[in-house]
Design a protein around this nucleic acid. Structure first.
Lengths: 178, 178
DNA sequence: CCCTGCGTTCAATATGTTTTGAATGGAGTG
DNA sequence: CACTCCATTCAAAACATATTGAACGCAGGG
């Protein structure tokens, strides 16, 4: 194959590995995803393992994760006994999968804990000494800031996930950047 | 100290540890930040180490990182020889520091690589066989999608970092969430 | 039924990251 | 100048995470 194609393939695959790490996934996951993304035809586990030079076991486990995150799908290939996969090529869909489950859970959790803390502090106020009350107020201020941050994050998530329109995405990416 | 205060302190500190991990920092960094955030008075390295039960060395190194990221500042305490730190309590400032350096660098890098790939593919077109040309077009499509994603990310970053106004933040967090 | 081809599992291993603590160095003090 | 008090550094150790490959299990043939 022409060296340009090979070079582009390599840098894209390794770039997606990097991106995966950045998002807290393993970088093999990113490379598998990249390999599938740049393959017009679905690939089998063997082919993936051979291409990336990683073991059968690793391919199997990482592909399972990719599937769980909706980044790849199994594809049935006529006359083949093996499993074949293709990448979910709609990036927007992938983003939504990740933000919608992992990140949103994280934000909800944080908001829950912070809310509880605030309630506890308020409920305990009458039992506190003067010094303690002062500290409690201090805590409430700081925790309030944290809460504001997470509420902002929640809004941002809703904005991105929200209205089913991938339209926003397309529209926004067409804006010229100076 | 009243158990409610202790409990709230603990859960906030460990929550910030979790948050730090989430953002790709060590969780000790998050806990140090949390400890400082909830302390009305600046703390010395010793106090931090004692509170969190971690070694001097670890406190020293992690505090350096926190400082680098603009999450904590050294404070001079009259009559003290030791270093004291306080947390940068403006969350918005912290976010800007992180997004502005680390994340933005990442996005720029990706856009650079993708742009190069596109150029290389276009430049090589005339040297390719028919099959290779078809594959090259396929690559261009996929890489175009990736590029759109990163351009979106860049816009989002600009939006958050952009106009020096922390106003947006305040305004936005005051919106009622149903 | 046995064989083959394939995917999964999981314990062992390799790799990467964080923490520790002893050594170092520097700044202030008597 | 010696002593003390700290902060920093860094190699070794602890810990966490990812990968391997042998063993297993299952599905289709033959």
């Amino acid at each position: 194959m022409h060296e340009t194609l090979t070079a582009v393939n390599d840098s894209t695959v390794s770039g997606l590995g990097r991106l995966a790490r950045f998002f807290g996934f393993s970088d093999v996951m990113g490379r598998l995803y990249g390999t599938l993304l740049l393959s017009p035809a679905p690939l089998s586990l063997d082919q993936l393992g051979d291409t990336l030079e990683i073991s059968k076991g690793s391919v199997s486990m990482n592909m399972r994760d990719l599937e769980r995150w909706g980044m790849a799908k199994e594809v049935w290939v006529r006359g083949e006994r093996r499993k074949f996969y293709k990448a979910e090529s709609d990036m927007w869909q992938v983003i939504r999968n990740v933000l919608g489950s992992r990140e949103q859970r994280e934000v909800q959790l944080a908001l829950g804990v912070l809310g509880e803390s605030i309630e506890k502090l308020q409920a305990a106020e009458r039992d506190l000494s003067a010094d303690e009350q002062q500290l409690a107020r201090y805590y409430l201020d700081r925790i309030g800031d944290l809460q504001a941050f997470f509420q902002f994050a929640q809004l941002a998530l809703h904005a991105v996930l929200g209205g089913d329109k991938a339209l926003d995405f397309d529209a926004i990416t067409k804006i010229e950047i100076e």
